[in-house]
Write a protein that binds this DNA or RNA. Structure first.
Length: 413
DNA sequence: TCTGGGGTCCTAGGACCC
DNA sequence: TCTGGGGTCCTAGGACCC
């Protein structure tokens, strides 16, 4: 039996690459893609020109600009990146019917099944690389291995524009001196716990018995580590048409300044609820559990969740639940840094007819507002509590720039 | 110019039912 | 009166990924 060939395709500096591809002015320059405009934000992606200055993903923007004052900051546009990745994944699917979307900029591709355009992994990798270079004007790194774990490891080894093939017989040699946290699934916490018992490399991990590992890390955790140390992964490439539905949808927001002002906090919460609710309705989801997350100025972070008596998808329902949890926490006096709201236990396409007249009229209003906001942009029509607040300014500016808003509208209180 | 935002999965304790 | 054990749901928090 031939060995299985799994490819892991990883776009290099994806968000920055898409921006450079779309805007020739940015090419060859240090570009930082950030989440939002405040300096409390962090680097989402840095172009390789920016990385040359030491700028890294996750670094606070302030620190990044100290390293490279002439770096160009671009606000991230998730829908643009999602569109590019969809086009790339569609192409990958022409090479193999078995393609798994791992994240917005990563995919696994299995060359084993019948119906693959190409069987030779190197040939497939070169085809993918040249297609991405010519159609999208950026590079990707590709790892080839006998399973997902090893393919992913291989793609990391020669970034950017890398191509590394680790054959089954080479796995043990590659892992011998490899630090454990290079493997996907071993983060800072596990690394520390392993180091505590003298395990720093995969080679050392391989020499620990299953019994010892399960004793320390539990039955599931121990077994997983045992296999990882041997480069074994049983996880199969899951084709994207059979991917599970979303399990939760949420948003979090870090305030530009810490505050304990109740009105300010409630406005931000309302905006978050509006965004979550709109996404739920867009995908025809409803959810039953509302989770409220709060981070205080000292970085202490609390989360509480409440199951609702029925499925919900409206902002006012989510907000009501979130505010109830917030009140029960009894920490109104503390300065808040971050707020978050999410809805889970999702069900798709289960919306029932509203029985109460009040609900019917809310539903009609919501549908009308959705139509307007779909057409003219998020928060074109929004509760007055939002449009009157400072938090609304960026949206107002964005709508004004697009020339779609000339008057500030207020809808309901 | 300290520390974003989107998720999934796992664990562990308690409630509750049979 | 005194009591086991399995199953499921709910909840809080943390680890991990990009």
């Amino acid at each position: 039996m031939d060995e299985r060939h799994i490819l892991h395709i990883d776009m290099d500096a994806f968000f920055a690459s898409v921006e450079q591809s779309a805007n020739p002015f940015l090419r060859g320059k240090p570009v930082i893609v950030g989440g939002n405009r405040t300096l409390r934000s962090i680097v989402a992606t840095a172009s390789y020109e920016a990385r040359a200055f030491g700028i890294r993903t996750g670094m606070p923007l302030g620190q990044a600009f100290r390293l490279c004052p002439h770096a160009i900051l671009v606000m991230g546009d998730t829908s643009k990146y999602a569109d590019t990745s969809r086009r790339i994944f569609t192409f990958l699917n022409e090479i193999s019917p078995l393609v798994e979307i791992f994240s917005i900029d990563e995919a696994f591709l299995d060359l084993t099944p019948r119906g693959c355009l190409i069987r030779d992994p190197i040939e497939a990798a070169y085809l993918i690389k040249s297609m991405i270079r010519f159609d999208f004007h950026f590079t990707c790194s590709i790892g080839i291995g006998p399973n997902k774990l090893i393919a992913k490891l291989a793609s990391e080894m020669e970034k950017p524009d890398g191509l590394v093939w680790i054959r089954k017989k080479e796995v043990q040699g590659v892992l011998e001196k490899l630090p454990v946290d290079k493997l996907c699934g071993i983060g800072p916490h596990l690394k520390k716990r392993l180091a505590h018992i003298g395990i720093t490399t995969c080679g050392k991990l391989r020499r620990i018995s299953l019994k010892t590992l399960t004793k320390r890390f539990g039955i599931m955790g121990g077994r997983r580590l045992y296999q990882m140390g041997r480069g074994i992964s049983e996880s199969s490439v899951m084709p994207f048409f059979s991917e599970p539905l979303a399990k939760s949808m949420g948003h979090v927001h870090t305030l530009s300044h810490d505050t304990s002002d109740r009105e300010n906090i409630e406005t931000v919460l309302l905006m978050l609820c509006e965004k979550v609710a709109r996404r739920l309705r867009e995908k025809n989801f409803q959810g039953r559990v509302v989770t409220f997350v709060i981070r205080f100025s000292d970085f202490e972070t609390l989360s509480r969740q409440h199951a609702q008596p029925h499925l919900i998808d409206r902002a006012d329902e989510i907000l009501k639940a979130a505010l109830k949890i917030f009140s029960e926490m009894g920490c109104d006096h503390r300065a808040v840094r971050m707020l978050g709201v999410s809805v889970s236990n999702l069900v798709q396409g289960a919306r029932q007819l509203d029985l109460l007249e009040e609900d019917q009229s809310k539903r009609r209003l919501t549908e009308t507002l959705d139509e307007i906001n779909d057409k003219y942009g998020e928060f074109t029509m929004a509760p007055a509590a939002i449009t009157r607040s400072r938090a609304y300014e960026p949206h107002y500016d964005a709508l004004k720039t697009k020339g779609k808003l000339t008057h500030r509208l207020e809808t309901w209180d």
